[in-house]
Design a protein around this nucleic acid. Structure first.
Length: 821
RNA sequence: GCGAGCGUGGCGGAAUGGCAGACGCGCCGGGCUUAGGACCCGGUGGCCCUUGGCCGUGUGGGUUCAAGUCCCACCGCUCGCACCA
């Protein structure tokens, strides 16, 4: 036996260099034989070195890539960097160095850590989104969107982060706070660039059918909720005083007869008009001031009382001609629907609360079936469920569900409304008043207006020499006069460039296409894309459940409509790793609980770092680093090392007599581990490999199994461990006498005959309690089992002469004797 | 409030409705050592009258020959959305 200890610090760098030199993990563009497999990991932000979350994600993604490679696929496993963006910029500002310098440094650091970790990337097609060769094509896609009216500029109330001094997309506002810095977000009326993602709302919902079972329900549900489709009707009310038509959206047109007031969002222009010059103007102004001063969080809190003011006007209900008072109230949002609602307090909880606060009438128009009729005076909450129409003229007596259809149809026939679908999804606000991003390729000309930069003038470069990167509410690019001032591409008169940059999520919405080949002439080569995509397996954090994944899906649908890609969904299957925390809290420098992958590699080596993460629990669950033990993994690697070396030596004559049990274990483990890895059950795969290595170690120690059997078991162990721990397995593979890399070896198969169980323990129960265990052959039938069970002395004792009422047999695993009771 | 998910030893976690606790950590005992926080071997859910038996998967009910697993109610935790009409 080899007493020498396995030393990862010596072995790992050797193989990193060897793999690099041989370009072992390069995808083969010319191979037409092997099936292709695109294994993609979400590319990282270069803000410092890789963290533990990266370790888990990339370890998992690498197991998939390596497994597929061994299974004979032509694997594309690329990496790049999402290099633009606020975090990089903020860090650069606080350190007083250029964002580009800081970003490049971090990329170098992360690249080195990836290589130390032994992640099997194809380094020949790496890129950063801040390279002009990349963002040139981001701009190109922007212009395609612009041409089709899907990129546009408009003034609207937008989310503004006072700390980062920039606007944010709806998706980047978490509970009223900035996703990045955590500051309270304000609403500001600003002119900004948007992508018309709402155009694709229905397609984004419909195409999810393709993703069922291959994306988690959690992510699909989150996306569905985010898009927020609701079906209802537009209904036109008429303002009694002015004769203006005001359209509302409702999902409950059946309750139209129960509308007792009408509400406009405080910011609604009509509210302003209605009170102008009336006795209600002063009260309305005070109300608006209060609302404007409130933060989004305060205003949107459901805890807080709903407030509003009467506007002195009345709206005419189209179904019954009734005049109902028009109010402005803070619980109605300008951005959703039409910014105006009919209020039906009897059947809508929000309207109910508002009506109670202001003494407005409650009129029931749907009565629950089979229950005593509701009394408005006794109600403590709105009645939102099914029932039968009452107080509703011609609709009385019909079920509410049917009334929805009939009322809508009748209104449509009279031209006073129509069937409607509304989405919660808003257009994607993509402009940012910051420096470190992709410039928007538009020029503002005093005579031509907005003029797109011609394709042949791309890229619009991001200038390096900016005096001050600090945020001031306007992009720092505005201060670079020789960049800003250009001739209009259309008429040649002096014009100004757009100074806003694009949201980083624009950069990451198409990067996966560019990995198919760094095409100098185009964003990507459609033929290559057709060969590699859609991505077979995408791995990354659940935090991108909405943002990145929704935006990427939108981009691909758009590119599909342009005829550039032949599919509508970019990621065929999605795997989300859990978060890595420390004592239940997120790791961070300020908490002082930060553990970095580099530290673990220094201490125990990359294999141990990878295995520790993979064994910690199910891949999709959170990992608490405080609960895991790299030491245990280091011990196991060492045991594997000794056992495999021992088996290799037994070729020199140390093997013993043949042991069919060892052979069967090896084949059964091959089946089980293959199955586990295929289903991303890395933790149980490791457990089964541990059991196998323990058995092998015991066999080697006690001379069990022939030299060939020990060796075959050792080879299976090494092959199956290779995707998880690439370094020690490469070393052992060579120790076993192979000269080619284990990572190019074929994944082991198994003999079905050996996997099949021959003899096993059958459990004998009496009334469901285990009373004996008997050895049986796998082909034992019901009669055999019954006879063996009845012959057991232990069973006889347990039965104590009671008659057997029933015998349940599950051959060959179980017999249950049920006595009469 | 709405939606989704989860509750199993001291800990992380295993378990197609069919022997609960695989595998590992930790701990205990032993070996090897001048010594070890190295390495090796063994033990380790609780309780008992200790050959053997009883109890045990958040709580209470149910279905079943059989429930951690399926159904109902409740308690607790986590995540997502949150005045979306």
């Amino acid at each position: 036996m080899d007493p020498e200890r396995y030393d990862p610090q010596q072995v790992e760098p050797k193989w990193t260099a060897a793999w690099e030199e041989r370009a072992l993990y390069r995808a083969d563009e010319n191979d037409t034989e092997r099936a292709r497999f695109y294994a993609l990991d979400m590319f990282p932000y270069p803000s410092g070195d890789l963290h533990m979350g990266h370790l888990e994600a990339f370890a998992g993604g690498d197991v998939i890539a390596r497994l597929k490679r061994m299974q004979g696929y032509n694997v594309l496993h690329p990496i790049g960097w999402d290099a633009f963006g606020l975090p990089a910029e903020n860090a650069a500002i606080s350190r007083g160095i250029h964002p580009k310098t800081w970003t490049r440094q971090n990329i170098d650091t992360q690249r080195a850590t990836f290589q130390r970790l032994g992640i099997s990337f194809d380094w020949s097609r790496t890129f950063n989104t801040c390279d002009p060769d990349y963002y040139r094509w981001t701009q190109w896609i922007f212009l395609r969107l612009y041409e089709r009216g899907l990129a546009y500029r408009k003034a609207s109330p937008v989310n503004w982060c006072p700390h980062d001094q920039t606007v944010l997309a709806n998706e980047q506002v978490i509970n009223g706070h900035c996703e990045r810095c955590g500051h309270l977000v304000e609403k500001r009326e600003l002119t900004q660039w948007f992508f018309r993602i709402t155009e694709y709302a229905q397609a984004l919902l419909d195409d999810m059918a393709e993703l069922e079972d291959r994306w988690s329900d959690k992510v699909l549900t989150m996306q569905r909720n985010w898009i927020g489709r609701s079906v209802g009707a537009y209904v036109d009310f008429i303002i009694s005083e002015t004769g203006q038509t005001v359209r509302i959206f409702t999902t409950r047109p059946d309750t139209l007869y129960g509308a007792t007031f009408f509400v406009l969002a405080p910011e609604h222009q009509l509210a302003e008009q209605l009170v102008a010059g009336t006795e209600h103007e002063a009260a309305f102004r005070r109300f608006r001031d209060t609302v404007d001063r409130e933060t989004e969080v305060e205003r949107l809190s459901t805890e807080r009382d709903k407030t509003g003011v009467f506007l002195g006007a009345y709206a005419i209900n189209p179904v019954n001609g009734e005049r109902i008072p028009v109010w402005a109230a803070d619980y109605v949002l300008l951005e959703y629907g039409t910014g105006a609602i009919m209020a039906v307090p009897a059947h809508d909880q929000r309207d109910f609360e508002f009506a109670r606060n202001y003494g407005l009438p409650v009129r029931i128009v749907v009565q629950p079936e089979g229950e005593p009729p509701l009394d408005p005076g006794q109600m403590t909450e709105a009645m939102g469920h099914e029932g039968v129409m009452v107080n509703s003229g011609p609709y009385d007596g019909i079920p509410a569900g049917e009334a929805i259809r009939r009322v809508t149809a009748d209104l449509a026939a009279q031209g006073r409304g129509e069937f409607a679908i509304n989405y919660r999804l808003r257009d994607w606000l993509v402009s940012r008043q910051r420096y470190w991003g992709c410039p928007i390729p538009i020029i503002h000309c005093p005579s031509c207006g907005e003029v797109p930069v011609p394709d042949d003038a791309l890229p619009v470069p991001l200038p390096d020499d900016v005096a001050d990167f600090r945020p001031k509410g306007e992009s720092p690019l505005a201060t670079v006069s020789d960049w800003v001032n250009v001739a209009c591409p259309r008429c040649g008169t002096p014009a100004r460039r757009e100074t806003d940059t694009m949201d980083t999520f624009v950069d990451s919405s198409w990067y996966f296409l560019r990995y198919t080949g760094l095409d100098p002439e185009r964003p990507f080569d459609p033929d290559r894309v057709a060969r590699w995509m859609p991505v077979h397996q995408y791995t990354g954090g659940i935090e991108h459940a909405i943002l990145h994944l929704l935006y990427s899906r939108f981009f691909v649908k758009f590119l599909h409509d342009l005829g550039l890609v032949g599919f509508r969904e970019p990621f065929r299957a999605l795997l989300n790793q859990g978060m890595v925390v420390m004592h239940g809290a997120a790791m961070s420098k300020s908490r002082g609980n930060l553990v970095e992958p580099a530290t673990i590699i220094d201490e125990h080596g990359a294999d141990v770092a990878r295995l520790t993460m993979l064994f910690a629990g199910p891949f999709e669950d959170d990992v608490d680093w405080a609960d895991v033990s790299p030491e245990g993994m280091a011990r196991w690697i060492h045991r594997v090392w000794r056992a495999v070396r021992g088996a290799a030596d037994s070729g020199a004559g140390h093997g013993g007599a043949s042991d069919p049990a060892l052979v069967r274990h090896a084949h059964r483990a091959t089946q089980a581990v293959s199955d586990d890895l295929e289903r991303f059950r890395f933790n149980t795969a490791v457990a089964k490999l541990m059991t196998l290595s323990n058995d092998l170690a015991d066999a080697v120690r006690s001379g069990r199994g022939s030299a060939t059997e020990q060796r075959d078991t050792a080879e299976r162990l090494v092959l199956m461990l290779a995707p998880l721990a690439p370094f020690v397995t490469e070393e052992l593979w060579h120790a076993l006498g192979h000269t080619e890399s284990v990572h190019l070896a074929a994944w082991p198969g198994y003999d079905p005959e050996l996997v099949r169980v021959e003899r096993l323990t059958c459990v004998v129960q009496v009334d469901g309690k285990v009373r004996d265990r008997i050895e049986v052959t796998a082909d034992a039938g019901e009669d055999d089992l019954r006879a063996l069970a009845l012959a057991s002395p232990k069973v006889k004792a347990a039965l104590a002469d009671r008659p057997i009422a029933r015998v349940i047999t599950v051959p060959p695993k179980l017999v249950n004797l049920v006595t009469a009771r």
